[in-house]
Design a protein around this nucleic acid. Structure first.
Length: 268
DNA sequence: CAGATATGACAAC
DNA sequence: TTGTCCTATCTGG
């Protein structure tokens, strides 16, 4: 379930479970055996998220970098850890807790310069206090590509995924194919503010909710509908279902191989 | 139980 | 623009 809010939650969780402790590492699946052996026995100094990237900083001077991709997943618990089942890329544990990682698109050890190179190619993360929205706007406003693609570009905005982008465009009344050049300062301010508040809320709740109270489906006389992703949304994966505001069926399309969703009436 | 699907990011063409 | 990778879960038969 990896959009930026998930990764920020994981960073906090991992620091809570293993931070300040010597960590044991193993790769039962074998694909990260060398890395696990190298980092095992070193102390986890801190864990942080940048966009969708998770970084564990260890006192041996190396950083564990994990990107969950589309399928990656973490789980954790208190010892004893269950026997490793399936494709378990990485297991971390101390005396009290274990953390398992499956299916990541990246799981690697980086030195300081490699970490810097990673951060250098990432855009502005709405969940980070040091985020500079002006920088992202400067990268958006002169590009003719559709906003549905630009807002997903991690070198512009780091951490927003398909759900947040589709929902934020809906709330701004902008069609996903609106070119970046058409984004006014006012429109950008609205989108950025939404990203910051919606993503921050998602960090707290662990799910993505974007529907304003007055638009909640049960307020319209229908049962609330919670998507499999766990939250309540206007358009994401609601193709064919009525818009929660105007009842027009939600449309679905494709952009760069990703699904896009919008209300043909509310977004132009 | 096979097939489709998924909140992502690449490289190769 | 297409293909590829990573894994679990949901769907329909």
């Amino acid at each position: 379930m990896p959009e930026g809010h998930t990764v920020h939650r994981l960073a906090a969780r991992h620091h809570e479970l293993l931070g300040g402790d010597v960590v044991n590492a193993a790769s039962p699946q074998g694909r990260f055996s060398a890395g696990a052996a190298r980092m095992s026995g070193s102390k986890l100094v801190s864990a942080e998220a940048y966009g969708k990237h998770l970084l564990h900083h260890y006192d041996l001077g190396l950083t564990l970098h994990v990107h969950l991709g589309l399928y990656g997943k973490f789980s954790d618990g208190t010892v004893p850890a269950p026997p490793p089942i399936g494709e378990l890329r990485l297991r971390l544990f101390n005396d009290r807790h274990w953390i398992d990682l499956r299916g990541p698109s990246a799981c690697e050890l980086l030195d300081a310069s490699q970490v810097q190179a990673l951060l250098d190619r990432l855009g502005v993360d709405p969940l980070r206090a040091d985020a500079d929205p002006k920088l992202a706007y400067a990268r958006l406003r002169h590009r003719a590509a559709p906003l549905g693609a630009l807002l997903l570009d991690q070198s512009i905005i780091a951490g927003a995924g398909l759900i947040f982008v589709m929902e934020v465009l809906y709330r701004a009344g902008l069609h996903p194919s609106t070119p970046g050049t058409a984004l006014t300062p006012k429109g950008w301010k609205r989108i950025w503010g939404d990203l910051v508040s919606l993503m921050a809320q998602a960090v707290l709740s662990g799910r993505i909710d974007t529907v304003r109270p007055k638009h909640m489906p049960d307020a319209m006389g229908r049962p609330p509908r919670v998507d499999r992703h766990g939250g309540e949304v206007y358009v994401y994966r609601r193709a064919g279902q009525p818009c929660l505001v105007c009842r027009t069926p939600i449309a679905r399309g494709e952009l760069n191989g990703r699904n896009t969703y919008w209300c043909p009436a509310c977004q132009s």
